[in-house]
């Protein structure tokens, strides 16, 4: 399968895949390091937007412009619609519960 792709396309697939990996890694680091629910929600959505974004772009390139590639693009679209909605739901629930966002000098939560 790899032989049939051509060098430029293959390179793009690899680059996109690595970018996806990188942003997923950043996102994971952020979830571990950041101090409270709000700031973690920021970085958790990073994994969805660019982490999944680049990975799915790589998948779409690998699959080509037939059914699978098209469906991957649709998938990307739905992730971009649902991801902020979910992040907002989490943040809003935290706010309604009266959780005050972390500021400099507070303890980690």
């Amino acid at each position: 399968m790899i032989d049939a792709l051509g060098p430029v396309r293959l390179a793009l697939i690899v680059v996109f895949g690595l970018c996806g990996l990188f942003f997923t890694f950043v996102s994971m680091t952020g979830v571990l390091r950041l101090p409270d629910v709000y700031s973690r929600a920021h970085t958790a959505s990073q994994a969805d937007t660019l982490g999944a974004g680049f990975t799915l772009a790589a998948v779409a390139l690998a699959a080509g412009w037939d059914g699978a590639g098209f469906k991957t693009v649709l998938l990307l679209f739905f992730i971009f619609v649902t991801n902020p909605t979910a992040a907002h739901a989490i943040a809003r629930a935290a706010f309604e519960e009266g959780i005050v966002p972390w500021t400099e000098g507070d303890e980690r939560r």
Partner: peptide, 23 residues
């Protein structure tokens, strides 16, 4: 509100009274 949340670094927490509360 969704665009703001999609952009890392800003997160819409609440929409109230015509204001967006953004973290």
């Amino acid at each position: 509100a969704n665009s703001i949340t999609l952009t890392p670094g800003t997160l819409t927490v609440r929409a109230r009274d015509g204001n967006l509360y953004v973290h």
